[in-house]
Nucleic acid binder design. Structure first.
Length: 927
RNA sequence: GGGCGCUUAGCUCAGCGGGAGAGCGUUCCCUUCACACGGGAGAGGUCGUAGGUUCAAUCCCUACAGCGCCCACCA
């Protein structure tokens, strides 16, 4: 017995558990051993995060694909898991420590801190998984992985070591984007360029030995002048080139710096001369390299001035009062230093002018801090080399982006890719498997044991020492450990989180072991993700997958929109501006939210979720529920004997025809990743075809006499409902599964839960005659309803209907469908006559006249106006078509079928016009 | 400075070569025995502007305007 109202919260949990208990989501179910595999790897959410709207969209789309393919008989693996999200997670735990007034990470030390993060992971790591389950995600949870679990960590180590040995990972000292707040290097991608209002300071640098002669440089960062090592002038700069080869004296410091010639100095920009600070500017770094200039780093890791004990800074600077004042700035932060320096320059009369300017300032996307180009040793991946195969794979369409426009974005970045800085100065993550000997020798190895072995082989003198002690180090793990601690030191840095994410499509399947899963499910079928991580993630998976598996990681990449918050800002777990999808699930059910997201999946880059829309799709679920209740009340139960191809009743053949059409639409749309089209097709079929017409039309049959027609109709109604449940299941899994269960009580037993049912393939169900027949009935009822509303005929008035001058087939039709028309159009007796009775409303339906006699109560003027309007419409239609057909070019050049179509249109409009003209004539007669 | 996208009904958006659609909102009618989270009937758009291509343009091309995004080292 179907409850009066569907209550999502009361059934969703139970249904999800039933799916899991049945092992419905398990990959490699024995009965599908020979089935074609279908695999999606989930974009792993932050382990300590919670579900936001972006996750809801992303996972709804993946779930639709997985459920669809599962119903199509594929062996589906939706591989779930979570990401350790290095910087983000570390920041969360550090914030917690601060809030609870506990010792900071630095105070407690690395080991204790990492332990703490693992505890936090254990505590909150399950949250997002349980939230995905509430959404209905059909992942194979038995295979859940974590980027820092043992297997995946082994994959990370192996990849690092392999790339190192291939020369594709290397250590380099160069400028990096340094986040002074997090005190770590970050990659180019993590830099946000922010348009900022600032100033351009024009500073006069005195020329050596010429106290009254200056070279003026313009800068947005005056504080970095302490690290200046040169001033550059364009070699063709007529105004300034005479200074090339001479020296300037750096104000406030007294350092003697050369004036050099370099193309980089644009005569049109600033003052035409540019200060060169190689340790604090990416361009200047390059200039410095070209001219073999020294690097003077004036900041520490916090971006505070670091001047004392700074050999490079102090080198060859004569003593002066100004220099002493500058030294006093040691330890000051950038902004305070800037203020001081500008003030002192002004006092010295060395500040020529200040211009207001707007320029881009790099910020860290996690911390929001202003970044500092900072000279450090970091690990880099040679992305340029790895990118080549990835570019080729997309060019050759081995991997296809949907929508294709994203390929351009992909190429644009990949073809200009820079070395990828993968080391991070934080603790939560995969510690880099590199050990340093006392002489700086680097040992890169997958395990500490291996590194120790390498070191032992290298430092033969140390081996001698241990031999003297009478121990064979190679055979004694404890000694080896001590040796490692005492003589080689592991790199303290960890890898960029995206390094492990890049391996996700194969590391989750067991690589580096040659597992059956790896063999069966790689390459994966599709990747579903947002455009914001095409570079961070998609491109890097392509590079790593091709390099280590020698094959693309996925065939299709479906890129969906981002869900933004009310202000249009990107929602992110670290910003905390998330809208909680679970509130919507609580309120309207998971199905309603899922359907909403699927229906909106075609939108562009922004999705602004409207709660009203979710409410509308909740109503849709309720509508379906009530349709099922109606079917139950009327004894419609599943009949395995029912074959829609052999249905006798036109209505039943018609609904089978419509179901087949819808099935094809939904299938084609999902195959093309057009989730919104698929959702619209099934929505229309359920509401506007099945409920609005089919169920209404079969009411006379269901309430009529028992017999073959009635029993067939009951079976057909149940059959069509089943088809609906199947087609809708990927979008609304809960309500459909629940209806699948409860409707089984009224008919033959089900073989499976709906989740494992086969997707409908509707062969030979098309039926043009049924479509024409029912189309006529629908048109007739629609025309009568319209005119009744327009002429204000009360619903209770049951007017007789007279079909005037119709052909015998129409008269037959009218007879066949009189019960139906009477009920839905609220008309009385239906008869056939040669002409419409005097004083009746005359409707033209498919070229024939249907009349509603009103026995003198008809408002002649209103009726005349109505017919005149129809007439005008018909004439306009004819004129439009005539204009086309009268155009010789159109007839000559348009495709034949288009011309034919226009001719048919004209014939139809002309026929309609003739009937309306007759009706107007009769109306005159009545007057 | 490059690149991409958007501009369609009051709102949120589909459609993208043969005279426009959905949801919500709105107007009128209906408490008809599945459903008022409902039923029926409407109103509402010169598809940003100007050119061009075409027999035909909301849809293709060009320019312009407005909005948004991505990438980029110009002081």
């Amino acid at each position: 017995m179907i409850e009066n109202r569907y209550q999502p919260s009361a059934v969703e949990g139970r249904i999800y558990k039933a799916w899991e208990d049945a092992g419905a989501f398990r990959a490699g179910r024995p009965e599908r051993a020979k089935a074609e595999p279908y695999c999606i790897v989930i974009p792993p959410p932050n382990v300590t995060g919670s579900l936001h709207m972006g996750h809801a969209l992303n996972n709804t789309l993946q779930d639709i694909l997985c459920r669809f393919e599962r119903m199509r008989g594929r062996d589906v693996l939706w591989q779930p898991g979570t990401d350790h999200a290095g910087i983000a997670t570390q920041a969360v735990v550090e914030r917690q420590l601060a809030e609870r007034k506990l010792p900071s990470s630095r105070e407690m030390g690395r080991e204790a801190f990492i332990k703490r993060v693992w505890e936090w992971k254990a505590e909150s790591g399950g949250t997002i998984i349980s939230q995905l389950k509430r959404l209905g995600a059909s992942c194979d949870w038995s295979r859940e992985r974590f980027t820092m679990d043992e297997g995946l960590s082994r994959a990370v180590m192996k990849v690092f070591v392999t790339l190192y040995r291939e020369g594709l990972i290397y250590r380099d000292k160069r400028l990096v984007n340094w986040d002074p707040k997090l005190k770590t290097a970050i990659s180019d991608l993590e830099v946000q360029q922010v348009e900022t209002k600032g100033h351009l300071w024009y500073i006069k640098y005195p020329i050596e030995h010429h106290a009254n002669e200056f070279i003026v440089v313009a800068t947005t960062r005056p504080e970095t002048m302490l690290g200046d090592v040169a001033v550059a002038v364009h070699p063709d700069n007529e105004r300034l080139k005479h200074l090339i080869g001479r020296h300037a004296i750096l104000p406030l410091v007294g350092r003697r710096i050369p004036i050099i010639a370099d193309d980089y100095a644009d005569p049109e920009k600033g003052s035409g001369a540019v200060k060169i600070t190689p340790a604090h500017d990416f361009n200047d770094f390059e200039v410095g390299r070209r001219h073999d200039l020294p690097l003077i780093n004036i900041f520490d890791a916090d971006a505070h001035l670091d001047l004392k004990d700074n050999a490079a800074f102090l080198k060859a600077v004569p003593a002066s009062a100004e220099f002493d004042a500058t030294m006093a700035l040691h330890g000051l932060d950038r902004i305070a230093a800037r203020k001081n320096i500008v003030e002192r320059l002004e006092a010295l009369g060395l500040l020529e002018k200040i211009e207001a300017t707007s320029h881009v300032v790099p910020h860290g996307d996690r911390s929001g801090a202003v970044l500092e180009p900072f000279l450090t040793d970091q690990w880099y991946v040679d992305a340029k080399t790895l990118a080549q195969d990835a570019i080729a794979a997309v060019r050759e369409r081995k991997t296809v982006f949907v929508p294709a426009q994203w390929e351009a974005t992909f190429f644009n970045w990949m073809e200009n890719i820079q070395p990828w800085c993968v080391s991070r100065q934080i603790w939560w993550g995969h510690q880099i498997p590199a050990w340093y000997g006392p002489d700086g020798k680097i040992f890169v190895a997958e395990t500490e044991d291996d590194a120790v072995a390498d070191a032992l082989a290298h430092y033969t003198d140390i081996e001698e020492i241990t031999v003297e002690e009478g121990h064979d180090i190679a055979a004694d793990p404890d000694r080896r450990g001590r040796f490692a601690r005492d003589y080689i030191r592991r790199d303290e840095d960890v890898l960029d989180t995206w390094f492990s994410s890049a391996l996700w499509p194969f590391s989750t399947l067991g690589w580096p072991d040659e597992t059956p899963e790896l063999k069966r499910y790689y390459p994966t079928s599709a990747l579903v993700t947002g455009f914001d991580i095409i570079f961070f993630w998609v491109a890097r998976m392509m590079m790593m997958g091709l390099h280590f598996m020698k094959e693309i990681p996925f065939r299709d990449v479906y890129i969906h929109a981002l869900v933004r918050d009310a202000t249009g800002a990107k929602m992110s777990k670290s910003k905390g501006n998330v809208i909680d999808p679970l509130e919507l699930v609580d309120k309207y059910g998971a199905d309603a939210l899922r359907f909403t997201l699927a229906a909106m999946a075609a939108q562009g880059r922004d999705i602004k979720l409207s709660e009203q829309r979710v409410e509308g799709y909740r109503n849709f679920a309720t509508k379906l529920w009530n349709a099922a209740r109606f079917a139950e009340i009327n004894g419609c139960g599943r009949d395995p004997e029912f074959d829609p191809r052999r249905a006798n009743e036109t209505l039943n053949r018609w609904i089978a025809h419509e179901a087949a059409k819808t099935g094809r639409e939904v299938t084609a749309a999902i195959e093309a990743y057009k989730f919104n089209d698929a959702a619209a097709a099934i929505y229309r079929f359920v509401w506007n075809v099945y409920c609005d017409w089919y169920l209404e039309l079969i009411k006379p049959v269901l309430t009529g006499v028992d017999g073959a027609a009635k029993s067939e109709t009951r079976a057909a109604a149940a059959w069509a409902l089943d088809e609906i449940l199947k087609l809708l299941h990927p979008f609304m899994p809960f309500v459909t599964e629940e209806l699948w269960r409860v409707t089984a009580e009224n008919g033959a037993k089900r073989g499976h839960m709906l989740v494992l049912e086969s997707w409908p393939v509707h062969d030979r169900l098309d039926n043009a005659e049924a479509e024409t027949e029912i189309g006529w009935v629908i048109d007739l009822i629609g025309a009568i309803r319209s005119v009744r509303a327009e002429m204000n005929i009360p619903p209770a008035t049951m007017l007789p209907l007279v079909l005037a001058g119709v052909t015998p087939p129409t008269a037959e039709r009218a007879k066949r469908w009189s019960d139906f028309v009477q009920r839905l159009a609220r008309v009385g007796e239906i008869s056939v006559a040669d002409t419409a009775p005097q004083g009746s409303l005359q409707l033209v339906v498919r070229g024939e006249v249907a009349a509603l006699p009103l026995k003198g109560v008809i408002d002649l003027a209103a009726e005349r106006a109505r017919l005149a309007k129809e007439m005008a419409k018909a004439e306009a239609d004819i004129a439009r078509v005539d204009a086309k057909l009268g155009n010789a070019n159109f007839v000559a050049r348009a495709p034949e079928d288009v011309v034919e179509e226009e001719k048919e249109k004209r014939a139809e409009a002309q026929g309609r016009k003739a009937k309306i003209a007759e009706a107007l004539e009769r109306l005159k007669g009545a007057a």
